[in-house]
């Protein structure tokens, strides 16, 4: 199985395409259509409505303020910080996910080791993906605590010394949460890339060998071009999901210290549930939605092209 076949799989096999029309399929779709309407379409219309209003949720009679909320959110320096942090966090995480995922997938795809050994390593490598954000957050708070084992190991190997405040030092916090997210997310890439590597026809490598290519040349002329469609799909999905990351940030730094790890998600959440500025929060939420939709359009178009 290659990467997402999202678009293709919802279509019935072509030769039956004119098989049957009628009202019958609608009965089967009805529960889904109802749920999607209630859980998706209505809420999105509501949140867009909120973003143009004032006094929403907390007040029964909101008033229309048109673009005033947008002006306020877009002019808020903390929002600017959140945008920059989200970009740094997302690009750093996604790039590292790709590099680590590809490196691990290539090592796991080696012909030099037995199947069993590879299966064992693969199981260990996928472990971080199996833990939920809450667990990952508390675990790394323990590991990275000033008296924690990471500082001990760095100190005893002479790399760094003393009680480094990884999550509460403003200079280090953004790097630290990005690192945690890298650790938590690379298996997602690794598994897809491993499946992709196993699908590369062997004769491509043999042909390259005949042409006198060395290992590095084969990597750039065979491996990368063959994996390209999977890599692009994964990059887009990871960009979408990482830019929406909330739980991990919320439970490690909560956006602090002094906003250095504030993301668009935590910024939006705080507007709504700490300051009860639901209209401003909705505005920020709509901006986040717009960002995701831009990425989603690229993703859907890429999937179409692959079909």
């Amino acid at each position: 199985m290659t990467s997402s076949s999202v678009d293709r799989t919802l279509r019935a096999p072509g030769r039956f395409s004119k098989a049957r029309r009628g009202s019958e399929p609608y009965a089967f779709i009805l529960p889904t259509a109802l749920l999607i309407t209630v859980l998706m379409i209505v809420p999105i219309v509501m949140v867009i409505g909120y973003s143009f209003s004032d006094n929403v949720i907390t007040n029964k009679h909101p008033e229309l303020v048109w673009l005033a909320n947008y002006a306020e959110v877009l002019g808020d320096p903390v929002f600017h910080t959140a945008v920059i942090n989200t970009v740094v966090f997302t690009v750093g995480s996604v790039a590292a996910h790709l590099v680590l995922g590809l490196a691990f997938a290539m090592m796991l795809n080696t012909q030099l080791l037995s199947r069993f050994t590879k299966a064992l390593f693969r199981t260990v490598y996928i472990l971080p993906w199996l833990f939920t954000a809450a667990v990952i957050a508390v675990l790394w708070r323990l590991l990275l605590s000033p008296n924690g084992v990471v500082n001990y190991l760095l100190d005893s190997t002479g790399i760094a010394s003393g009680q480094v405040e990884w999550l509460s030092n403003p200079d280090l916090a953004l790097g630290s949460v990005t690192f945690i997210n890298i650790w938590a997310g690379y298996p997602f890439f690794m598994i897809s890339l491993l499946a992709g590597l196993q699908g590369i026809p062997h004769d491509l490598y043999e042909a390259a060998t005949v042409d006198g290519a060395n290992g590095i040349q084969k990597f750039f002329s065979v491996t990368i071009p063959q994996l390209r469609p999977i890599i692009i799909s994964m990059l887009l999905l990871d960009l979408i999901w990482t830019s929406q990351q909330f739980a991990l940030i919320w439970m490690t730094t909560g956006g602090g210290p002094i906003n250095v790890t504030e993301m668009l998600s935590t910024y939006t959440y705080k507007l709504a549930f700490s300051r009860y500025e639901f209209a401003l929060a909705s505005t920020s939420a709509v901006l986040v939605l717009a960002l995701s939709m831009v990425l989603a359009v690229f993703y859907v178009r890429h999937q179409r092209a692959r079909d």
């Binding site: 279509r11 889904t32 998706m40 929406q244 909330f246 993703y299």
Partner: peptide
């Protein structure tokens, strides 16, 4: 089955996966 609106529902279902949870949370 083939039915009218299948393609639209299909697109909606695929794109729902990209909608940020934080956007849905407030409504």
């Amino acid at each position: 089955f083939e039915f009218r609106g299948k393609r639209i529902i299909n697109v909606v279902i695929v794109s729902v996966q990209a909608v940020p949870p934080i956007t849905l949370l407030i409504p």
